[in-house]
Amino acid sequence: MTEPGLSGRTVLVTGGRGFLGRHVCQQLEAAGAIVVAIGSGDYDLTEQSEVRRMFCEVNPSIVVHAAAAVGGIGANVANPGYFLYANALMGLMVLEEARLHGVDRFVLVSTTCAYPRDAPLPLSEDDVWLGAPVGATGPYGMAKRLLHEACATYQAQYGFSSVVLMLANLYGPEDNFDDDSSHVIPALIKRYVSANGEGSAVTNWGTGRATREFLHVTDAARAIVLACTADVGPQPMNIGTGVETSVAQIAQHVQDAVGYTGEVSWDHSKPEGQPRRYLDVTRARDGLGFEAAVPLSEGIPETVSWFIRSQKQ
């Protein structure tokens, strides 16, 4: 079903071949947009001449900036300067060239890693600057904070239209299941599927009591598509479910979906990050009319089924 605000318009999606980007492109195409998906092999977004060439060749009216330099915990710990530099520079380059080329709307895909460790719960957008982002993803979060401010100042000085979306932890079909860089849900799925096939025990990290918020990738993509034409400004908006879920609950969902009946233990000596984290999603509901539609009870079995099918191909 086409959306009048997107039908026939050219939308450039940086990171358009990644996990989130592929889903965004699919939904934009369904809304009638002409979608140009850009991957890391097409243009070097840290080089201004390359970014300028991209805009000259694509000539978009809307830009979704979903490209990011990301990695697992080990990579973030080893390369904090790189992750800050690359993410800040890519965002600033794309934003500036979007302005110079007269783009109608710039959608920045940001992250809840921008929040400080001790911000009150549920996490509210007004509290982003209460302290520095910390931990392995702190430099990545700080780069995104800079881009939040860039969008706000471009609105103030140039009247340039942008939207900033801070996404909860994503999961879903086509996620990254690589051992070195996968996140909580895909890592658990791979662990339980492997143990089920081998008849071995499962050992999870931490106590399982830490809480997080998880958002199905199709819900995230839908919020991004809404942001392309919504009448909202550059104030950051949390995009999530607003539901706090413990890692132990996630593990149980995965275990049930896999059908694993073996032994499960928790290694309390392993780190589990912040004790609690979940979002206030009021601003997205009021500004975009967005509410998440896929509960974990549906999304996790779907993701497990996709992963098992992918292993057989």
Score class of each variant (00 low, 15 high):
residue 149 E to T: 05
residue 279 L to S: 00
residue 210 A to Q: 06
residue 281 V to E: 02
residue 65 H to S: 08
residue 197 G to K: 15
residue 158 Y to R: 12
residue 208 G to H: 01
residue 263 E to V: 10
residue 176 N to M: 01
residue 266 W to S: 02
residue 62 I to Q: 05
residue 261 T to H: 14
residue 131 G to K: 11
residue 103 V to W: 01
residue 48 Q to R: 13
residue 206 G to F: 11
residue 208 G to A: 06
residue 57 E to R: 07
residue 16 G to A: 08
residue 181 S to T: 15
residue 113 C to E: 12
residue 100 L to T: 15
residue 248 A to F: 11
residue 143 A to M: 05
residue 126 D to N: 13
residue 125 E to Y: 05
residue 299 G to Y: 00
residue 132 A to G: 12
residue 267 D to I: 02
residue 287 G to A: 15
residue 68 A to V: 07
residue 165 L to N: 09
residue 52 R to T: 10
residue 115 Y to S: 08
residue 238 N to W: 10
residue 32 G to E: 04
residue 71 G to V: 01
residue 102 G to K: 08
residue 70 V to P: 00
residue 72 G to L: 03
residue 181 S to A: 15
residue 61 S to D: 10
residue 169 N to I: 11
residue 213 E to T: 07
residue 190 K to T: 14
residue 287 G to W: 14
residue 210 A to G: 03
residue 52 R to Q: 13
residue 279 L to Y: 02
residue 129 W to R: 06
residue 223 A to I: 13
residue 239 I to L: 07
residue 67 A to K: 03
residue 141 G to Y: 03
residue 55 F to S: 05
residue 54 M to A: 04
residue 172 G to I: 05
residue 291 E to P: 04
residue 263 E to I: 09
residue 39 G to A: 09
residue 47 E to N: 04
residue 274 Q to R: 15
residue 123 L to Y: 11
residue 144 K to A: 01
residue 251 A to V: 07
residue 110 S to K: 02
residue 87 N to Y: 05
residue 114 A to K: 00
residue 78 A to G: 12
residue 186 P to Y: 12
residue 243 V to Y: 10
residue 265 S to Y: 05
residue 293 A to C: 06
residue 228 C to F: 01
residue 303 T to V: 01
residue 275 P to H: 03
residue 39 G to D: 07
residue 98 A to W: 10
residue 198 E to H: 13
residue 278 Y to A: 09
residue 200 S to Q: 09
residue 30 A to K: 04
residue 280 D to F: 00
residue 285 R to K: 11
residue 298 E to V: 11
residue 221 A to D: 07
residue 5 G to Y: 08
residue 286 D to A: 09
residue 259 G to S: 13
residue 31 A to E: 07
residue 308 I to F: 06
residue 129 W to N: 11
residue 219 D to T: 07
residue 57 E to T: 06
residue 226 L to P: 03
residue 183 H to G: 11
residue 102 G to Y: 00
residue 251 A to Q: 02
residue 236 P to Y: 08
residue 211 T to K: 02
residue 110 S to T: 11
residue 187 A to N: 04
residue 86 A to T: 03
residue 250 I to H: 04
residue 260 Y to Q: 09
residue 148 H to G: 03
residue 194 S to R: 12
residue 225 V to C: 10
residue 80 P to K: 05
residue 300 I to W: 00
residue 191 R to C: 13
residue 66 A to K: 04
residue 256 D to I: 11
residue 20 L to W: 00
residue 262 G to H: 00
residue 273 G to T: 02
residue 257 A to F: 01
residue 151 C to K: 01
residue 88 A to T: 01
residue 44 D to K: 08
residue 248 A to I: 06
residue 262 G to Q: 09
residue 27 Q to N: 04
residue 10 T to K: 10
residue 174 E to M: 12
residue 50 E to H: 09
residue 103 V to M: 03
residue 240 G to H: 00
residue 53 R to D: 07
residue 288 L to F: 12
residue 74 G to H: 10
residue 262 G to S: 09
residue 33 A to S: 12
residue 222 R to Q: 08
residue 305 S to G: 05
